[in-house]
Simulated scan of single mutants.
Amino acid sequence: MLITVMIADDHGQGYPVAWCISSQETTEVVQLLFQVIKDRSPNVKVRTLMTDDDDIWYNGSKAVFGNEILHLLCHWHVDRSWKNHLRSVAKEHQLNIYQTLCILVHEVDRSLFTTRMTQFTEYWNTREPNFVKYFNTYYKERADKWARCYRHFSHADTDTNMYLESFHAKLKTNYLNGKVNRRVDFLIDALLRIEQDCFFKVAQKQRLGTINKQEVKEAHRHKRGLQIKAEDVTDIDDNH
């Protein structure tokens, strides 16, 4: 089993920073992996961790980096879990429930989110009690892990683990030739080659001065700010 730790780099691309090859994926294995990372890079501060809906990664990370680490759930995995459980819901209710869940995920106002979630559970509790029970058990009390209204902080500007999924697809297709690999030495060789390619791509972007994703967004905001008319601006302080 290959375990990958990936970050979003300054250019808005996924970059693998650590791998672990293990026969199992447990909290102990993940904790050991993060401890090695911390020992090798003691000055690295980990603020946010995004995973699928599995506490193994969160428990392993906070054992090393402390309880202050923020744990976010990948929206794609949350969405997949909801769709799977919606199969047990009456067909005429599935679309309405799914649309409401999508609205909840992307709502940015926390007060409005709370109101809508309460309305959702109250309305569907008598119509689809089993689904509401599932939602209340696994998601209602953990809204801070999946709802966008709780993500008003820097988190690499991403809400899914698609960087990771893309990396694994590239590894299997381009470096393992789409074949099932059963040899560790072949896997290690492929990982060394893909890491080398990733490193050179980043080095090339830095050498060419490629504008990163954050700089593009800041440039757009600056351009919009310049379009604000002077009469629409109100002075609130003599020094500003």
Rank of each mutant, 00 (worst) to 15 (best):
T4K: 01
D9F: 13
H11L: 07
G12H: 00
Q13D: 11
V17H: 07
V17A: 00
A18M: 00
C20Y: 12
C20H: 02
S22M: 05
T26H: 08
V29H: 02
V29I: 02
Q31V: 04
Q35N: 09
K38V: 04
K38S: 03
D39K: 09
D39R: 00
D39C: 02
D39M: 05
S41T: 12
P42F: 00
K45F: 08
R47K: 10
T48W: 04
T51K: 12
D52K: 05
S61N: 13
K62R: 13
K62E: 06
A63R: 12
V64A: 02
G66S: 00
N67W: 08
I69L: 14
L72S: 10
L72E: 01
L73W: 08
H75G: 05
V78T: 09
D79P: 10
R87G: 02
R87I: 14
V89C: 06
V89D: 04
E92F: 14
H93L: 06
Q94D: 03
N96H: 09
I97N: 06
T100Y: 09
L104F: 13
H106Y: 15
V108H: 10
V108T: 14
R110N: 13
L112W: 07
T114D: 07
T118P: 05
Y123E: 03
E128D: 01
N130S: 12
F131M: 03
F131P: 00
V132M: 06
V132L: 02
V132H: 04
Y134F: 10
N136G: 05
Y139F: 15
Y139P: 01
Y139V: 07
K140A: 11
K140F: 09
D144Q: 03
K145F: 13
R148M: 11
Y150H: 14
Y150E: 01
R151E: 04
S154R: 03
S154I: 11
A156C: 04
D159L: 15
M162T: 11
A169L: 09
A169E: 08
K170Y: 11
L171I: 04
G178T: 12
K179Q: 13
K179D: 10
V180F: 09
R182A: 10
R182Y: 12
R182S: 08
F186S: 09
F186W: 13
L187G: 01
I188S: 08
I188T: 06
D189Q: 15
D189Y: 09
D189E: 07
A190I: 01
L191S: 04
L191F: 07
R193K: 15
I194N: 03
C198M: 06
F199Q: 11
K201L: 02
R207H: 07
R207F: 08
N212Q: 07
H220L: 14
R221S: 10
R221Q: 14
G225V: 05
L226A: 06
Q227E: 05
Q227I: 03
Q227P: 07
V233G: 06
I236C: 07
N239M: 10
N239L: 06
